[in-house]
Design a protein around this nucleic acid. Structure first.
Length: 220
DNA sequence: GCGACAG
DNA sequence: ATCTTGTCGC
């Protein structure tokens, strides 16, 4: 896995903020997708006792959404969880898992925000810019931004806005179920990110990619 | 100063 | 994220 914008992971919060301000200028919010044959979900779990971070990547074929392969990677937890800086805690392990997986995905769905972030560089953007690949942020809960009530029917969505700009969408993936927060990560537009999120979702609230990664990350 | 805060 | 039983509803 080639890294495009290498930087240290041994940083203070203030230094991490500088990295975010610099990398946000590298984010591409236009569609630059290849033919999508494989989609992946990434997720991270923690062993609080041992101070270990474990990342899982699940690669599914598209549009069938059947699990093709997966990889796990563990590394020492080196960064605390601070809202707005999640990527500095999770990406090191994710890069190792991506390095180990045998089928490189054409699109990655991340567990967390993309541009719906205080400095527009959520984990999906950060990962996408580093590996120069299309990514989408699909978060289970709110981090920042304002939005109106979302209609109850599946596929309905409302823009997530901040300071006059649209930074993502609150999307109802299942009728009557709590919506998810979708935002572009890298090399993708918001409408396309919404379309692929729905295309990767079948019977449950979360995309199949995320559900598989969640399940695999829980393995020890 | 007060409230909010992805995983 | 993680700690945790039963329970309401399709």
């Amino acid at each position: 896995m080639e890294i495009f914008h290498e930087h240290s992971w041994d940083l203070t919060i203030a230094e991490a903020k500088v990295v975010q301000e610099k990398l946000k200028n590298k984010v591409i919010l236009e569609d630059q997708l290849p033919t999508i044959n494989y989609v992946a979900g990434v997720d991270v779990s923690y062993d609080k006792q041992k101070g270990i971070t474990q990342a899982a990547i699940a690669v599914l074929n598209f549009p069938q959404l059947e699990l093709q392969t997966h990889a796990l990677a563990r590394c020492k937890t080196a960064f605390p969880y601070v809202p707005g800086y999640l990527s500095f805690r999770e990406i090191p392990a994710i890069l190792e898992a991506l390095n180990a997986v045998t089928i490189q995905p054409d699109l990655i769905l991340c567990d967390g925000q993309g541009t719906a972030h205080p400095r527009r560089l959520g984990i999906a953007c950060h990962l996408g810019v580093l590996i120069n690949k299309p990514t989408i942020g699909v978060a289970k809960s709110w981090l920042t931004g304002d939005y109106e009530q979302v209609p109850l029917t599946q596929g309905s969505w409302q823009p997530l806005t901040s300071e006059g700009e649209t930074i993502g969408a609150v999307l109802r993936t299942r009728t009557g179920i709590k919506p998810v927060f979708v935002s572009p990560g890298h090399q993708i537009s918001l409408p396309t990110a919404i379309r692929y999120t729905l295309a990767c979702t079948s019977k449950y609230r979360l995309p199949e990619t995320t559900r598989w990664a969640d399940k695999l990350a829980a393995l020890q």
